[in-house]
Design a protein around this nucleic acid. Structure first.
Length: 485
RNA sequence: GGCUGAGUGGCAGAGUGGCUAUGCAGCGGACUGCAAAUCCGUGUACCUCGGUUCGACUCCGGGCUCAGCCUCCA
C-alpha cells in the first residue's frame, strides 16, 4: 500500500484517497517572469512521477492533477515595467518557455493548468467570503484604502503545517510591521492598485490579489473544497502553504488538504539554489550540456525530500549510469510475458514507500545486469526482461527512447544548418541527422574492411577519428556498433 | 533566539535491530588484434559520547557539525 510522508503530521502515512475514483492533487507551479531554473525542474519532475505512479495505482482516468501558473504578482509587474512590456506579453512568453522545458524533461501535462488572471471571480468571491465570515478586514487608517488583510488571530490552527506558533512568529524580529495591519502576522489578500499598475475591479476598488489567495481559489475551484494531495517546493511551506490553509479552511469551513508533500531544495556548494542568492542555473543552461533524460535521472536518483546537490560531476555520473541502462537495451527485442514479478514487486514496493525513486532505480540496474548476463544465451527471457525494464522505466519517465535514438541522436546546431544552407544542402533536421549517420556508418564500413585485412593501424586511425567527433565504437560478435558520448 | 531536517565506504545515494543496496570511480580476472561494452571477483561504510538490548549504523538521551525555515523564492 502506498505510504506518503505527510508534512502536516510529519509522518509517513498510508495514503487513503477521499474518492479512489478521483484522486486529486494540486501542485504550486511557477510565477512566470523568468526562465525556469533547476529548482523548478525538480518540482516538475518529482510531481510528474507522483502523478505517473498515482495513475498506475488508481487508473489513468482516476487521477486529476492541477498545477497552477501565477501570472500576476509584484515581480511580474516589475519585470514587465523594466522591459516596457505588457504583463500578459511577458507571462505568455515565459509560459511558453516553461512548457518547452517541461516537455524536454519528459514531464506529462497536468489535467489542468489554471492561471490566476483567469480566476479573478473566484478569488474575489473567496475574499468576500472571508470578510463576511470575519476572517478578513479592510485596511483602516494608515493603510492604503482598498487593501484587504487576512486576520491570522481568528484562525485557530495557524502554524500547524510549518510547525510554528503565532507567539514565536510575533516575537521573531524579522516579521515586518506594517501600520495597516492589525497584527504583524496578517497578510494581504487584495492589494489596491497604485497609479499605472494593472488592476481588476473589486468591491474594495481597483486592485489585484495578494500572493496566496490565488492558489486557494484555484485549488478549491478545480478540485473542490477538500482534496487529497497538495505539493510544492519546501520553500513554499511557510508562509505560502500555511496561508493557503488558513484562507481555504476559513472560507469553506472544511478541511482543505489531507496530505502535504514538499520536495527538498536543489543546492550548489552545499547552499540553497535560489533567485535571491543568484546562484541558480536555468534548465535551459543545463540542457545545453546534458540530455534532458540525464537531468531527469539525476533528479530521481535522490529521494524527493532530500537536498539535491548540483554539480557537473554528479551530472556526469548520472549520464554514465543512464548509458549503462540504455546499453542493456541495445540489440534486444522486447517481448511480453515471462517471470518478471520479482522485479515488479520490488519496484512497486520502493515506490509505495514514499516514492523511493533511488531504490526503484536500483531495481532497474539489477534488471540491466540480468539482461546482460543472459543476452547471448536466452533471447526470449532477455527480451522479457528488457520489456520489464522499459515498463518500469516508464513509471519514472525514463528509458522511453529506443537505444538507437538515445545514442545516435545528434544535436543539430544553428551553425550546422547555416553551413548546409550556404552549401545548398537540405536543412531539414531529419535529413541532416540521416546524413551525419551515413557519414559515420561509411567510416565504420571502411574500418571493418581494414580489420578484415588486419590493418590495425588504419582501423585504429578511423576509430580515433570518430572518437574525436564524440563517437564511440564497440566491436562485438555481430559486428561494430556505435554511440555518441 | 524559536522551529525543522540531515550526518553512511574515494564520490553519489538507499536501507535495515543480527543477513549483498544500487550507481560512478579504483583494483584483479574473463572476453577483445588493441580497445569499448559486458560479465565475474574485490573494498575492515555507517559523526561523537552514553543508555536500552543477547546483539545497534539502525531504538532512546546528550554533544558536535551541516543545511533550511522564521522575509520574496520550487
Amino acid at each position: 500500500m502506498l505510504q506518503i510522508h505527510n508534512n502536516l503530521t510529519k509522518r509517513k502515512e498510508s495514503f487513503v484517497p477521499i474518492d479512489p475514483k478521483n484522486v486529486r492533487m494540486y501542485v504550486c507551479g511557477m510565477t512566470v517572469y523568468d526562465l525556469c531554473h533547476l529548482g523548478h525542474a525538480r518540482v516538475l519532475v518529482v510531481f510528474d512521477v507522483v502523478y505517473r505512479y498515482l495513475r498506475q495505482v488508481y487508473g489513468a482516468e482516476q487521477v486529476t492533477y492541477v498545477r497552477n501558473v501565477t501570472d500576476i504578482d509584484d515581480k511580474i509587474i516589475a519585470r514587465a515595467n523594466e522591459r516596457g512590456e505588457k504583463i500578459n506579453q511577458l507571462t505568455d512568453h515565459y509560459i511558453k518557455e516553461m512548457v518547452r522545458d517541461a516537455d524536454a524533461l519528459g514531464v506529462q501535462h497536468p489535467d489542468e493548468e489554471p492561471r490566476a488572471t483567469r480566476h479573478m471571480d473566484e478569488i474575489i468571491a473567496m475574499i468576500q467570503t472571508l470578510i463576511d465570515k470575519g476572517y478578513a478586514y479592510q485596511a483602516g487608517n494608515g493603510g492604503t484604502l482598498g487593501d484587504v488583510y487576512y486576520d491570522v488571530s481568528h484562525f485557530e490552527h495557524y502554524g500547524q503545517l510549518s510547525g510554528k506558533n503565532t507567539d514565536d512568529l510575533r516575537a521573531g524580529a524579522r516579521v515586518e510591521v506594517d501600520a495597516a495591519k492589525q497584527d504583524p502576522l496578517d497578510f494581504v489578500l487584495w492589494k489596491a492598485a497604485k497609479p499605472g499598475e494593472p488592476y481588476w475591479e473589486s468591491p474594495w476598488g481597483k486592485g489585484r490579489p495578494g500572493w496566496h489567495i490565488e492558489c486557494s481559489a484555484m485549488a478549491t475551484c478545480c478540485l473542490g473544497n477538500h482534496f487529497d494531495i497538495h505539493g510544492g517546493g519546501l520553500d513554499l511551506q511557510f508562509p505560502h502553504h500555511e496561508n493557503e490553509i488558513a484562507q481555504s479552511e476559513a472560507a469553506t469551513g472544511e478541511k482543505f488538504v489531507n496530505v502535504w508533500m514538499h520536495n527538498g531544495f536543489v543546492r550548489i556548494d552545499e547552499e540553497k539554489m535560489s533567485k535571491s542568492l543568484g546562484n541558480f542555473f536555468t534548465i535551459r543552461e543545463v540542457l545545453e550540456k546534458y540530455k534532458p533524460e540525464v537531468v531527469r535521472f539525476f533528479i530521481l536518483n535522490s529521494h524527493y525530500r532530500s537536498p539535491l546537490n548540483y554539480s557537473d560531476k554528479h551530472l556526469d555520473e548520472a549520464k554514465a549510469a543512464l548509458t549503462t541502462l540504455y546499453n542493456a537495451l541495445r540489440g534486444v527485442t522486447p517481448g511480453e510475458g515471462g517471470d518478471v514479478q520479482a522485479y515488479t514487486a520490488r519496484f512497486d514496493a520502493a515506490m509505495d514507500d514514499d516514492f523511493n525513486t533511488p531504490e526503484a532505480i536500483a531495481v532497474l540496474f539489477e534488471l540491466a545486469r540480468e539482461i546482460n548476463r543472459l543476452r547471448n544465451n536466452d533471447a526470449l527471457v532477455t527480451g522479457q526482461l528488457a520489456a520489464e525494464l522499459m515498463r518500469l522505466g516508464r513509471c519514472l519517465g525514463l528509458l522511453q527512447k529506443s537505444p538507437g535514438e538515445y545514442f545516435e541522436e545528434i544535436e543539430v546546431t544553428e551553425q550546422m544548418i547555416a553551413a548546409r544552407a550556404s552549401a545548398g544542402a537540405s536543412i531539414d533536421i531529419k535529413v541532416i541527422r540521416a546524413d551525419e549517420k551515413k557519414k559515420i556508418e561509411k567510416l565504420i564500413e571502411q574500418r571493418s574492411l581494414a580489420r578484415e585485412n588486419k590493418n590495425w593501424a588504419e582501423s585504429d586511425r578511423i576509430r580515433d577519428e570518430l572518437a574525436a567527433q564524440g563517437v564511440v565504437l564497440e566491436d562485438g560478435p555481430q559486428g561494430t556498433t556505435w554511440r555518441r558520448e
